[in-house]
């Protein structure tokens, strides 16, 4: 990996990068308030389940295909993958948050890196040809700044993992030390998920996190909440 690519990877996957994903708890806030999640082990189960049964089996599959389409300069295919992921994201809070964080990521990325591909995606969103879901935008950003598929996926998963651990920290479930230990222990899972999606195409996307889905659906009805979902 070249030095500038290494730096791009660090910059894109850093939680300091303002993509808006720090406002998401992915149902964790709801489950903590209902006292279904009370310990670090519960949080670990939550992370493993959502990573393997939703993020890894759906978002990452779409991300990998969008990265390939971007490498082929196939803007129509990127639009088609975005439309498919939108139709397969059945929970409105998730669709809304993916659109918001995707557009925020695109805005910051266009300002940080000059790329005609990002400008083209921006135009598609402006004229209503794309929703601009976060995994799709992340794929095009990663590809356009020179990251390969696996490194883009790893950065995406790292961002998700640190985002949820950051939410757990702010919700008072775990402390800084336990958060770092958990991150280190989860690292092999990210590699496993990255490898699992290599042979998967869009028809292979699936998800199965019914209890977390319900937690995300009912999040808006919480009397008070810190996060968007």
């Amino acid at each position: 990996m070249f030095a500038d690519q290494r730096w791009s990877l660090m910059q894109l996957s850093d939680s300091f990068f303002p993509s808006g994903s720090f406002t998401l708890s992915h149902g964790l806030e709801s489950l903590i308030q209902s006292q279904e999640i009370r310990s670090t082990q519960d949080l670990r189960d939550f992370l493993e389940l959502i990573l393997h049964n939703k993020i890894g089996s759906m978002d990452v599959v779409a991300l990998r295909q969008a990265h390939r389409a971007s490498a082929n300069n196939d803007n129509r295919e990127i639009q088609a993958i975005d439309a498919l992921l939108f139709a397969r994201t059945l929970l409105q809070p998730n669709r809304d948050s993916q659109c918001k964080s995707g557009r925020a990521l695109l805005m910051v990325s266009r300002s940080t890196w000059n790329s005609p591909k990002l400008d083209a995606i921006h135009t598609c969103i402006q004229i209503g040809k794309m929703h601009g879901l976060h995994p799709i935008i992340f794929a095009v950003v990663g590809q356009s700044i020179g990251l390969d598929e696996d490194n883009t996926i790893f950065a995406f998963l790292h961002g998700f993992l640190t985002g949820v651990c950051g939410a757990a920290l702010r919700l008072g479930l775990i402390g800084h030390i336990n958060a770092q230990i958990l991150l280190k222990e989860m690292a092999p899972q990210l590699e496993m998920i990255t490898q699992k999606t290599i042979g998967m195409d869009l028809d292979d996307m699936w998800s199965c996190t019914p209890l977390i889905d319900i937690a995300q659906m009912t999040h808006g009805a919480l009397p008070q909440h810190l996060f968007l979902n």
């Binding site: 279904e36 519960d42 189960d45 939550f46 493993e48 389940l49 393997h52 049964n53 089996s57 439309a83 498919l84 139709a87 397969r88 059945l90 996307m205 699936w206 998800s207 199965c208 996190t209 019914p210 209890l211 977390i212």
Partner: peptide
């Protein structure tokens, strides 16, 4: 045109999460 779609893959014996509260507390989906 696809309006919406869902794909569930539920593993049984090899389901690493079947005994966690995510599936065990309310087993019917």
């Amino acid at each position: 045109t696809l309006l919406f779609g869902d794909a569930m893959r539920l593993t049984g014996q090899s389901n690493a999460f079947k005994d966690s509260f995510f599936f065990a507390k309310y087993p019917l989906i």
